[in-house]
């Protein structure tokens, strides 16, 4: 008995690193880092027959996109996204000043009317531009940039307060109409 106790038994662990490497490489190869980035949106509730909200024409900012991805804004030709950005911002923050723009930011609605053949890419471009206007407005109200506003962490109390203050009274009214077949 004594003879065995004196001897130190040791497991050779030099191959441990090799085993770990093998596993590491396996997981490296199989990992797909998933991106959860995108444009967030909330859909309206389902209705069998969609009700047509009675909106005064001045509170609607109509954007049409046809099947060849051409854009028409308020029945006028499209003049680039920079111009659209300015126009939409003026429309939302009109507060009843101009007779043909919105009565209040609460009532202001951006209506996207598309064709079934419109490409998703074009829709995302327009949607992106519209959300950009809203985020810019929200950011300006609390004194931060639009990208800072988008990245507010709602779990933190001061961020949540900024988020709520920014959105107060200005809902993001972007309505996506059922696409029509002809056009």
């Amino acid at each position: 008995m004594r003879r065995y106790q004196r001897r130190k038994t040791e497991i050779n662990s030099s191959s441990m690193a090799d085993i770990a490497f093998l596993l590491l490489i396996f997981f490296l190869v199989t990992t797909t880092i998933q991106s959860n980035r995108g444009l967030s949106a909330t859909l309206p509730p389902y209705a069998e027959k969609p009700e047509f909200a009675k909106l005064h024409d001045r509170n609607l900012f109509k954007i049409h996109i046809n099947s060849s991805d051409r854009i028409m804004i308020e029945d006028a030709p499209f003049e680039g996204f920079d111009r659209l950005h300015i126009d939409v911002k003026k429309f939302i923050l009109n507060y009843g000043n101009e007779p043909d723009l919105s009565e209040s930011p609460k009532d202001a609605t951006i209506s996207l009317q598309m064709n079934r053949g419109t490409h998703y890419k074009r829709f995302i471009e327009v949607m992106d531009a519209m959300q950009g206007v809203y985020y810019e407005i929200y950011g300006e109200r609390v004194g931060i940039s639009s990208s800072e506003f988008r990245n507010l962490d709602l779990k933190l109390a001061d961020h949540k307060a900024k988020y709520d203050a920014g959105r107060e009274g200005i809902p993001m009214n972007i309505s996506i109409a059922e696409p029509n077949k002809i056009n």
Partner: peptide, 19 residues
Amino acid sequence: TDVTQELKKANARRIIYGA
């Protein structure tokens, strides 16, 4: 829109357009 219409029916209304 056919897909989003179904999502409305399923009451899954928070969506992300992956980009």
